[in-house]
C-alpha cells in the first residue's frame, strides 16, 4: 500500500498536555473503508491519538501538538485549517453516550441544523435515514419527540452514532464506544460497525482485545505514548513482530 491509498496519515505526531508528553513520533496510515483498532494499556495514548484526528484536543487547555495529520493529503493542523470543517468530515462517538438533553429527533437533526438546513422534510429524511443506519429506527420511531435521556445506555450510544452519521462524514472515530455498555448492547454496536465500513472508514479505540480481534481489519498497538506495532489484525494477533505486543495480547501484562 502506498501513501496515496491512505485516507488519514500522521507524520511524526507529538503531543503534550502542559509539560507532560502524551504522544511520541506517531506515524501511521489509515486505509479507507476499513476498521482500524487502536489498542494498548490504560494511559498509552490511544484516546489522545484518536482525538487528534478530528482536532477534538483543541477543546483541552494547554494541549500542544507538533507534526502533521493528513486527511485526503491535506494537513488538518495547517494554520489556516478550520477544525469545524475537519469535524464535518470526521465524526466521533464518545466513550460515554453523550446525547444532548433534547429530544431524540433534535439530537439527530442538530448537526444538519447547525449547518444551515432548515427544511423540515429534508430534516425528517435525514433523521430517519441516520437512525436506520444506526439500527435504532424501529425502537424509537414512535417516540422521536421524547427526551433522549429516557433511552437505555445502548440505545443512547446508537443515537450518538446516528447523530454522527447524520452529517455524512467520511470517517467515524469511536473512542471506546462500548465500555459503558452491557454485552448485548455491545454486540449490537459491533454488528453495526461491520455494516458501517461499507460506506465509512472507522477508527476505534478499545481496551477490549477480543473486540479488536472480532471487528477490526487493522490494529495498532500503543504503549506509553508510542506506536509499537501496526498491521493487519490477523497478523498482530497471531504473529506479532514486537515482544511488547506479544506480551500484551497474550495477557502477560496490560
Amino acid at each position: 500500500m502506498t501513501s496515496k491509498d491512505k485516507l488519514i496519515r500522521t507524520e511524526t505526531l507529538n503531543l503534550w498536555y502542559g509539560e507532560k508528553q502524551a504522544l511520541y513520533d506517531i506515524t501511521l496510515g489509515i486505509l479507507p473503508n476499513k476498521i482500524t483498532a487502536l489498542i494498548g494499556p490504560s494511559g498509552c495514548g490511544k484516546s489522545t491519538l484518536i482525538r487528534c484526528f478530528n482536532r477534538m484536543n483543541d477543546v483541552i487547555d494547554k494541549c500542544k501538538i507538533t507534526g502533521k495529520i493528513f486527511f485526503h493529503e491535506t494537513d488538518i493542523y495547517r494554520p489556516d485549517a478550520d477544525a469545524v470543517e475537519v469535524r464535518k468530515k470526521i465524526g466521533m462517538v464518545f466513550q460515554k453516550p453523550n446525547p444532548f438533553p433534547k429530544t431524540i429527533y433534535e439530537n439527530v437533526a442538530y448537526g444538519s441544523k447547525v449547518q444551515g438546513i432548515t427544511n423540515k422534510n429534508q430534516l425528517d429524511e435525514i433523521v430517519e435515514k441516520s437512525l436506520k443506519n444506526a439500527a435504532l429506527w424501529d425502537e424509537v420511531k414512535d417516540r422521536l419527540h421524547e427526551s433522549a435521556m429516557g433511552l437505555s445506555g445502548g440505545q443512547q450510544q446508537r443515537l450518538c452514532i446516528a447523530r454522527s452519521l447524520s452529517i455524512e462524514p467520511e470517517v467515524i472515530l469511536m473512542d471506546e464506544p462500548c465500555s459503558a455498555l452491557d454485552p448485548i448492547a455491545t454486540a449490537k454496536i459491533e454488528d453495526l460497525m461491520t455494516g458501517l465500513k461499507k460506506k465509512y472508514t472507522v477508527i476505534i479505540v478499545t481496551h477490549n482485545m477480543q473486540q479488536a480481534a472480532r471487528v477490526s481489519d487493522y490494529t495498532a498497538y500503543m504503549y506509553l505514548g508510542k506506536l509499537i506495532e501496526f498491521g493487519e489484525t490477523k497478523q498482530i494477533f497471531e504473529n506479532p513482530k514486537e515482544e511488547l505486543t506479544e506480551n500484551y495480547i497474550t495477557g502477560r501484562f496490560g
Binding site: A83, K88, K96
Partner: peptide, 13 residues
C-alpha cells in the same frame, strides 16, 4: 464537557 464535545464533533462552531 461531553455535551460540548458531542456538539463540536458534528461540526458545530
Amino acid at each position: 464537557r461531553e455535551y460540548k464535545e458531542g456538539s463540536l464533533a458534528v461540526g458545530a462552531t
